[in-house]
Write a protein that binds this DNA or RNA. Structure first.
Lengths: 153, 153
DNA sequence: ATGGGTGCAAATCCTTTGCACTCGG
DNA sequence: CCGAGTGCAAAGGATTTGCACCCAT
């Protein structure tokens, strides 16, 4: 989903100021890496990108990613790869993910009716929904073409 | 979701025979623990239950759980607790999970229209869906009552 | 008998933590 | 200045793996 990285970065600065937290080089570098990434990055990928500008210890990477998530500016994902991925959060733009079982590519889609239906179904079993996670696994466009007979896993 | 543990166990025996795999005590004990559990068990919980009957090494627990999943008789879940959970698989009974952010209780629901909508939306972005994972996070019935003002996380 | 299964413990892998040092405000 | 932030390396916790021995078939 497209997001305005510049705006998110601004919000992050404000968040830091509002909470009397220092805006260190490391924090800004990590935030930028996440906000301007066109994809869902792993902690290690963030680390590699950040390293081009400043040296940042692994611990700080994780601490800052956590900070971003808690500030509501990034979202944490677990696509079952054994590690987590992070994506910049576009406020109010709920969307779901399709993960290709063959190549790992992530495709997104959004649909309000789906969001409403999910909340409604949860409420029907007396659950008060707050948020949810939906991941569809199968074959992305190019992997379907590359192997037309392949059965998605 | 209710499943017929006895039937699953039978299927598991058949699966083992069909693949020329020995039906060891350990395998059967692990399978039973999963098939007759009323809940989603972690590897460690399975281990504890199994231990009452036979001593089973951790490695075997994991190896057998993996076997069950690959045989299509159990499903693996990751509710973000830092470890996985397993549930017996009722063939053709797709259902989704609501996980209480407060107490961890899992509530389930099923809805065909939802299943169809998810598949359809994925196809609209040229994705060939195979299966999906939907988890709703919020407050379960009793946690809502215990703390009416609580905001679910 | 015999090939796969099992147990044990060591090894992995991602992530977290303790602690002395450094820096943004 | 000074409390919070950082880096390093060691710790952690779930899961996997190597290997000698054991057991269903």
């Amino acid at each position: 989903m497209k997001v305005d990285g510049t705006k998110l970065l601004e919000e992050f600065r404000r968040h830091l100021a509002d909470h009397n937290l220092p805006a260190t080089q490391q924090r800004l570098a990590v935030a930028e890496a996440v906000f301007f990434a066109g994809e869902h990055l792993s902690a290690e990928e963030v680390s590699r990108r950040v390293a081009k500008r400043v040296a940042v210890g692994t611990a700080t990477i994780y601490r800052t990613l956590d900070l971003l998530v808690r500030a509501g500016l990034a979202k944490e994902h677990d696509f079952g790869e054994g590690f987590k991925r992070y994506e910049p959060l576009a406020p109010g733009q709920a969307h779901e993910h399709c993960i290709c079982s063959s190549c790992g590519r992530v495709t997104e889609f959004a649909n309000d009716r789906l969001e409403r239906m999910i909340a409604l179904l949860a409420e029907e079993v007396e659950f008060r929904p707050h948020h949810h996670r939906l991941e569809v696994y199968g074959l992305c466009r190019s992997c379907q073409q590359a192997n037309p007979l392949a059965r998605a896993r």
